[in-house]
Design a protein around this nucleic acid. Sequence first.
DNA 1: CCAAACATACCGACTGAACGGTATGGTCTC
DNA 2: GAGACCATACCGTTCAGTCGGTATGTTTGG
Lengths: 212, 212
Amino acid sequence: MTRPTKRNPERGDARTRLLDAARDTIRRSGYTATSVDELCEAAGVTKGSFFHHFRSKEALGVAAARRWAETTTAFFAEAPYHLPDDPLERVLAYVAFRKSIIAGDIEAFSCLVGTMVQEVHASSPAIRDACGDSIFGHAATLEADIEAAMRSRGVTGGWTAAGLARHTQAVIQGAFVLAKAGNDLTLAHESLDHLERYIRLLFNCSDGSEPT
Amino acid sequence: MTRPTKRNPERGDARTRLLDAARDTIRRSGYTATSVDELCEAAGVTKGSFFHHFRSKEALGVAAARRWAETTTAFFAEAPYHLPDDPLERVLAYVAFRKSIIAGDIEAFSCLVGTMVQEVHASSPAIRDACGDSIFGHAATLEADIEAAMRSRGVTGGWTAAGLARHTQAVIQGAFVLAKAGNDLTLAHESLDHLERYIRLLFNCSDGSEPT
DNA sequence: CCAAACATACCGACTGAACGGTATGGTCTC
DNA sequence: GAGACCATACCGTTCAGTCGGTATGTTTGG
């Protein structure tokens, strides 16, 4: 319960708890359906504290998206899919890793910024851009491996590393939509399997499911 | 402006206008951010009329999703992608058709039920299921062509026609999310190009972009 | 080293507008 | 004249946001 100091103004306890509550509640109910009061109660703070840390609900949305970008960047940076020596193996390991973390409750694995941006893309450019930065920034972390894989396998075609990286994110976002619509997370697994198969085919690499 | 009759109770003018307003407004702002008053004003009806036709806002959401399923079913049934004799060509023509209708404003081409289900999947099972029926019902219309293509080309693998049909919908939904996040509809085109390439590769069919 | 001056963090009652929904009564059609 | 259709006034609740206040840290002047 350390109080924030002038040198560490971002470390306010209430601010962090509000951001954590926003992450969980917005993933479950969406941005608009999440009220400031609800957030305050979940975080165990008062409304005065909320508006001390955030100018408005929209400012909280932007901060939540930025924090999401930070935490996911750290999470994926430490994930084991970077270990293989071969860049293509790293790309495939990324897809496998994304599939492996789709488990448990939908709120636990779905994407905060993908959920938010669908709601606010027209009404709040600030939140929309923060969500876009998170999604496209994450996509960009895949580019180097895809690029290296293209070079090492001599693969070219009517597509780019950046474009394929973005496509992986589209498949993942779409997989979440289908999982929610069908209330069944194996629908998401299915699309990630197709994504893996696509990448293997792009790189002329057996997918282990050829007819015997 | 024919008034509805007892024999034709679904044809009420106000009801139809409310459903049209719901389609447009929810696609732009989302379900929760769309108020009943706003809908009434957009449809040019009063609140009494709204609650005469719909028991609740949730009931309107369900009706809007069902109507979306009906209108999209009719729209795609009449689309030209069914014309080719070869089933694989029909599947590819479907993807090309989906790409071609992604133009203009995001609200004009994005998916009502995909937007809604992200928001309400946890809070309203009724709307969620209606959205699911729309998405998976549409996916099912692709199964026969995919199945026929698999048979005619002798393609097998660790996937099914139904699964690939669902995956196409995941890619399309994800493409909408990225288009909204980047405020750029060409991001959606890009993912549909990858989907087309995937299908061609699955069926051992040149994608016209081999190195020369 | 102390204390005044200031900055930051937090509290909770309050506000006016907007929310979903209701009650009631009128009008038009069969 | 029965019932479908629509209008309007209204209800209780919840919404985002405000504001005066307190408590506790940090800075600074002597």
